[in-house]
Amino acid sequence: MKRWYKAGRTALILAAAAVLLAGCGGALDPRGDRAQDQYFLIMLSFGIMILVMLVVFTLFFTAIIRFRRRRGDTGDPKQVAGNHRLEIIWTVIPFTLILILASFTVVYAFKHDEVIAAEDAVNVQVVGHQFWWEFNYADYGIRTAQDLVLPANTWVNVELTSADVIHSFWIPQLTGKTDTNPGLTKTVAFKTGDPDVYLGKCAELCGEGHALMDFKVVVKNREEFEAWVAGMKEPAPAPATPAAAAGQEVFGNYCISCHAVESDKMSLGPNLKGFADRLTVGGFRENNDMWLREWIIDPQEVKPGATMPAFGDLLSEEELDNLIEYIRTLK
């Protein structure tokens, strides 16, 4: 088979694959710089490997079809010790292919280890917990959790660490993953894409709740992002309704020991400033009253392994309703 035909056919397969696979999302639908580089590498290595497989499979199937023993053919075939030229060819060609892949690999390895010092880059400190994500913006004095709000098409430096076991910070459509290690810090950079909501996942087994330790990356345009920052810095508004005020009292009795409601305060559990605007409850369930209620009553039912205690037995129905109404004021 002519080499150009094989290469052309390979290119066609790859192009078709790219179109088809983009519908699959994740790393195959890159929306940020880093993810796009990684996608290129994936496709390059895939292309080289398809080429290799075509050659090997062709030889293999030819061999096992053509050289089956014919019925009644009992003699020995010719005993061949080796063939020097062939052995050189199938050492040199793979070596060359690997040289190509290795070159791109080395270049990107260094490129992707850079921290971006751009003026408009956003710096976020990420702390992995069992089983939620803490996001702190020291430059703005903001602490938040679960929703990582970022401006569009901007470089972000995330400083990664963990409060307990090893987790791994991963946003497939924007960047590859980096582990969050307790006792150590690692900073990686990635560029956000256009305004959208991107899925984030934990990618290192961290206990019971690992499978559900998702987070959302909420990319807004610049003005909206600035507005969000400003909003987070504002103190929480006083509760407007009596129910919300009652809920605030419940919150003060049960929740405040772990959850802060001002963005400049540290807390054991997720900081709840702006919770009402967040996309999820527990990081992966839709943020509506039903799921919020389920969560407060028994967090482990929603997310196995969750470290928040269950309040179903401690709160009456009325207290729960008031609490939820109060939480809805945390904008």
């Binding site: 790393a27 990684q38 994936i42 290595s45 490997m49 791109f104 390895a109 590859g176 993953k177």
Partner: peptide, 12 residues
Amino acid sequence: VMLASAPANFQF
């Protein structure tokens, strides 16, 4: 071999 490429490995 695909996995061996460190930058791509960050996705895999």
